[in-house]
């Protein structure tokens, strides 16, 4: 029951950007800090594909809360859905489903895993 059958991840990512840009009304400076490593921000990660977290925001409170829910560096997760109107990103992290506000999701950097390593059971 895939929502977008047949869409290659690359195309999908472009499509996401196309859709998201008009929605980002006030880009806050933090969220656009480019990552030193090759990664994409969580809000642009392809849906239903396992990714690895390579960077979480430096803010103490946010990173702690994320860590408590199992979202920390080196952990794997996958995006289940993204709410419209700049809404949160819904991720599956080690069996827990977590909704992460968009501005926070923009500051979480992830790395796409090789398809052979992805643990997608679907």
């Amino acid at each position: 029951m895939s929502q977008r059958p047949g869409v290659l991840p690359e195309q999908y990512e472009n499509e996401m950007q196309f859709h998201l840009l008009p929605l980002i009304v006030r880009p806050d400076s933090e969220s656009y800090a480019p990552s030193q490593r090759t990664g994409i921000s969580l809000d642009r990660a392809p849906q239903r594909e396992w990714v690895e977290v390579i960077e979480v925001p430096h803010g103490r409170r946010a990173s702690r809360h994320l860590g408590q829910l199992g979202i920390c560096v080196n952990e794997r997760l996958r995006v289940l859905n993204t709410a419209p109107l700049g809404g949160p990103v819904l991720v599956d992290a080690g069996g827990t489903t977590v909704a992460i506000g968009r501005s926070l999701a923009r500051r979480i950097m992830v790395r796409r895993l090789d398809s052979t390593h992805s643990g997608d059971t679907h």
Binding site: A62, V98, A99, I100
Partner: peptide, 12 residues
């Protein structure tokens, strides 16, 4: 005030 980003566990 900028509200802190939402982090909410969505239970089963």
């Amino acid at each position: 005030e900028v509200t802190p980003g939402m982090v909410l566990e969505v239970p089963r």
